[in-house]
């Protein structure tokens, strides 16, 4: 058994888990954070993307024990004070989802994209950055539109915060 301690969405959590427990299992089954999805379980689809120490990772391909000591953010950790995160808002406004299964991973990847590359994202960049996220419904068009819009709003927020 492994003793894991980490911060999940700002809260410290500690638990004893089997060493082979995947981070996604720990989040979904251990913490009831079922917003993080398992689409493929073979590291392909990106439905399970969460942030570990600020970096987007596939939580189906990481052990909970590997994340011990880290700060983890899941889709549940994005919205604050009852208001949606700008990227979530953008997906709603631009019809960036149909069944919604891929959406948590898409949004976590999109936020990571903005954090890394800044709020000005052109279409080609967004599409190539989505290499690791698969959607079976939308045809990606509106996802790309949502991310561009969400990035723009996040940019305004960053500017405001800097002022």
């Amino acid at each position: 058994m492994a003793k894991v301690e980490m911060t999940v969405n700002g809260r410290s959590v500690a638990a004893d888990v089997e060493d082979r427990t995947l981070l996604v299992e720990f989040l979904r089954e251990g913490r009831n954070l079922t917003g993080t999805h398992v689409g493929c379980d073979t590291s392909q689809c990106g439905a399970c993307v969460v942030h570990v120490d600020g970096k987007a990772v596939k939580s189906c391909t990481m052990l909970a024990a590997q994340a011990s000591g880290s700060e983890v953010t899941t889709i549940e950790g994005l919205a604050g004070n009852g208001a949606l995160h700008p990227m979530q808002e953008a997906f709603r406004d631009n019809h960036g989802l149909q069944c919604g299964f891929c959406t948590p991973g898409m949004i976590m990847s999109a936020v990571d994209m903005v954090n890394r590359l800044g709020p000005k994202l052109d279409e080609a960049t967004i599409r190539s950055e989505l290499e690791g996220n698969i959607c079976r419904c939308t045809g990606y068009h509106n996802i790309v539109k949502s991310i561009a819009a969400g990035a723009k709003t996040m940019g305004k927020g960053m500017k405001k915060a800097a002022e």
Partner: peptide, 9 residues
């Protein structure tokens, strides 16, 4: 290599 998430790990 792969995708951004793979490159992060």
């Amino acid at each position: 290599i792969g995708d951004p998430h793979v490159r992060n790990r």
